Computed example of a mutant assay.
Amino acid sequence: MHPALRILYLGLAWLMVGLGVVGAFLPIMPTTPFLLLAAGLFARASPRLEQWLLNHPIFGASLRLWREKGSISRRAKTGAVSLMATSFGLFCFFGNPSLKLAAIVAAVMALPALFILTRPAE
Rank of each mutant, 00 (worst) to 15 (best):
M1W: 12
M1V: 14
H2G: 14
P3C: 05
A4M: 10
R6K: 15
R6T: 15
R6M: 10
I7A: 15
L8A: 14
L8F: 12
Y9T: 00
Y9F: 07
L10H: 05
L10K: 12
W14C: 03
L15Q: 02
V17K: 00
G18F: 14
L19K: 12
G20W: 04
G20Q: 13
G20A: 07
V21D: 09
G23V: 08
A24E: 13
A24M: 13
F25P: 04
F25W: 14
I28C: 05
I28V: 15
I28P: 04
P30L: 05
T31G: 06
T32S: 14
F34E: 08
L35M: 14
L35H: 13
L36M: 11
L37T: 07
A38Q: 00
A38W: 00
A39K: 05
A39Q: 07
A43Q: 06
R44F: 09
A45R: 12
S46E: 06
S46D: 13
P47V: 03
P47W: 04
R48Q: 14
L49Y: 08
E50S: 14
Q51R: 09
W52Q: 11
W52K: 12
L53V: 12
L53R: 05
L53C: 03
L54S: 00
L54G: 03
N55A: 09
N55G: 06
N55D: 13
H56F: 02
H56W: 05
H56T: 02
I58R: 14
F59T: 01
F59L: 05
A61C: 00
S62V: 01
L63R: 08
L63Y: 02
R64I: 10
L65N: 13
L65R: 15
R67D: 02
R67V: 00
R67T: 02
E68Y: 05
S71I: 02
I72A: 08
S73A: 08
R74L: 09
R75A: 11
T78M: 05
T78H: 04
G79T: 06
A80D: 02
A80G: 12
V81G: 02
V81T: 11
L83E: 04
M84A: 09
M84K: 01
A85I: 10
T86Y: 15
F88S: 01
F88H: 03
G89I: 13
G89W: 10
L90A: 13
L90N: 04
L90K: 02
F91W: 03
C92D: 06
C92A: 14
F93K: 05
G95F: 07
P97N: 09
P97R: 13
P97M: 08
S98Y: 04
S98E: 03
L99S: 10
L99M: 11
L99E: 11
L101G: 09
L101P: 06
A102H: 09
A102D: 09
I104W: 10
I104Q: 04
V105E: 02
A107Y: 01
A107N: 06
V108W: 10
M109T: 01
A110R: 11
P112M: 04
P112N: 05
L114S: 06
I116R: 00
L117W: 06
L117P: 01
L117K: 00
T118E: 00
R119T: 07
P120V: 01
P120S: 08
E122K: 11
E122M: 07
E122N: 07
